[in-house]
């Protein structure tokens, strides 16, 4: 009789140990691949290290952060990042959700379209950037050729501030819409049909069904999509690097491009680390929002 509690404690301890052992590889990966680099990055950001500086680096406290905050270029890059994010979301969410609603119907050829529409998401951003750069070419690009064919004038897609910004958003959207569509489709597939049927019985039209029934039920999924896309925009680099390198001028210079220039072009390692840590700090609250969105019950 007296042995029962101790046995159950041993079992509980054994279970807890087993859980620890089983999750240890994952924890190790998180620590080695995420926590340690962030810690090293933070340490680096408090110094004045520079590749090829050939002088012993010193601790400078938050000087790198202070100088970046005072740097007009940093804020311009932040604004550009936000612009790309907002315009991108305005394009990506409605189209992605619209396509998902369309593909959710059991129409002929839906499955084929669903597969084809996923292709952009599967391509590497560098290849996508190169492909679109050829298409955007002011003289030989297929987009300008099409515009001329239908009687419209040429646009210097990569040579004009506004057009370049739009060009970047378009490429990002082309790759991201399938992601939005896929997640929305998953949300639609997991949705209970009873409220829809009840609404139909009550005489709700298609628009009312969408606005008052489907959209509220999709809210958690849309929240997750929104947060993931915001995080993705902060990380957006490859396509911009290939398409415009942040130009013309600084029209498409995002925080990612600024970070690259600072670290790998100017070789200012510590300044780049400070920008990187700032970017991480911006995205951490978004993670909590994402976690919250994922928990919301429809």
């Amino acid at each position: 009789m007296t042995s029962t509690p101790s046995r159950s404690m041993t079992t509980a301890r054994r279970r807890s140990l087993t859980s620890l052992v089983l999750t240890l590889p994952a924890w190790l990966m998180i620590v080695v691949l995420i926590m340690v680099p962030i810690a090293v990055g933070f340490y680096l950001s408090l110094r004045n290290e520079r590749i090829g500086g050939f002088v012993p680096p010193q601790y400078v406290g938050f000087e790198n952060y202070r100088s970046e905050i005072a740097n007009k270029v940093f804020w311009e890059a932040a604004l550009t990042t936000v612009k790309i994010m907002i315009i991108g979301l305005v394009i990506q969410l409605p189209i992605g959700v619209g396509l998902a609603l369309l593909l959710h119907q059991s129409l002929r050829g839906t499955r084929l379209f669903r597969s084809v529409l996923l292709i952009p998401m599967l391509l590497t951003p560098v290849a996508v950037g190169l492909m679109w750069r050829f298409m955007y070419d002011g003289d030989l690009g297929v987009i300008n050729w099409l515009l001329e064919t239908v009687g419209l004038g040429r646009i210097q897609w990569l040579g004009d501030d506004l057009a370049a910004l739009f060009a970047v958003v378009l490429v990002d959207s082309w790759q991201s819409i399938p992601f939005v569509m896929l997640l929305t489709l998953a949300g639609l597939a997991g949705m209970s049909t009873s409220p829809l049927e009840a609404a139909k019985v009550d005489g709700a039209g298609p628009w009312q069904l969408f606005w008052y029934v489907i959209l509220p039920m999709l809210r958690p999924v849309l929240g997750v999509i929104l947060i993931i896309r915001i995080i993705d925009t902060y990380k957006l680099f490859d396509a911009i690097f290939i398409l415009t390198r942040g130009g013309p001028g600084t029209a498409t210079q995002t925080l990612g491009i600024l970070n690259y220039n600072t670290g790998f072009n100017f070789l200012a390692t510590s300044r780049a680390a400070a920008i990187g840590i700032a970017l991480t700090a911006i995205t951490i609250p978004l993670y909590f929002l994402w976690a919250q969105a994922a928990r919301i019950e429809p």
Partner: peptide, 27 residues
């Protein structure tokens, strides 16, 4: 059959991207 079709399309797109890189026009 569907998987094969998707694989074929992906392969074609990849080849397309690869060849566009090779043209050098603007590259």
């Amino acid at each position: 059959i569907r998987a094969l079709v998707v694989a074929l399309v992906l392969a074609l797109v990849s080849v397309g991207c690869g060849s566009s890189e090779d043209t050098g026009a603007g590259d």
